[in-house]
Amino acid sequence: MKYALKGALVAAMMAVPGLAFAEAESDDPIIIVQNNWTSQLVLSYVVGKALEAEGYTVEYAPSDSQLQFQAIADGDMHFQVEAWEGSMKSAFEKAVENGMVDAGTHSAATREEWWIPNYVLEKCPGAGSWQGLDRCAEMFATAETKPKGRFVGPPADWGKNYADRIDALEMNFEAINVGQAATLWAELQSAYDRKEPIVLFNWTPNFIESKFEGQFVDFPAPSAACNEVKEWGPNPNATGDCGAPHSGWLKKAAWSGLAEKYPGAWSMMQNIDFSNAQIAAAALMVDVDGMEPEEAAEKWIEDNADVVAGWKG
């Protein structure tokens, strides 16, 4: 008797989520991917809240910035609002081959390049350009790289080979790859506090520009010829002797089943388009004003009601 009662209880308890399932079946949640940097978090909440306002159920799922694309292709997650050319190009393209949908490009342009804090210019006035920087290379040296200067490069898996560019331009630098983006910022923060010379990989838009004063280093402008014609560029004997494009793409990624399952949401997602200024504003509320990402999203929607309304059209 006792066991029967217990059994019934357990069964009843198991049935409760079952009920909830049955209820949710009619409108399955749309799962929006969240990564671990500010602008992405705020914008994903912005999109989520906009969808919720239209009556969709939305869930947020955290994910690694690389694992996510395969998950979107498989339909485990449905929408990613920020896919960066610089760091995610290969994973993105591979997932598109496997069935993920490219949901369009934002008007925001992204840039990735060598970057120096402004105080470096005081010690090495020419550091704003690559030749000037190269002349002060020794200033950036550490025990491992001596006598060469150290360039703190992006995580190795972001598919950027700066060692090749250093060779092509015959610079007196050595590229050290970090393990994750947070490592870059730790290096920067630490050097910044000590006003120690540092040159590192950086991109825009991100929260760095609101916290640290600095600038990108100028390299020879990129062109198709740079990578194909040896004679092109400062080094007549090498290809790749130029900088990165000044405007990389920022895309949206989506699950292929969205169009069929949530046609309304899908058309909204295609319309979503953020500019650099909008993204910066979103990140600023968190990084500088200390808001929580969710609060910031609410504020952003309030401030940009017309933009959000435009997505429905």
Binding site: T142, A143, E144, I176, A186, E187, S190
Partner: peptide
Amino acid sequence: YLIPAIMLFKIG
């Protein structure tokens, strides 16, 4: 504690 380690000792 990776972060303070990086700050104090740099990558390496």
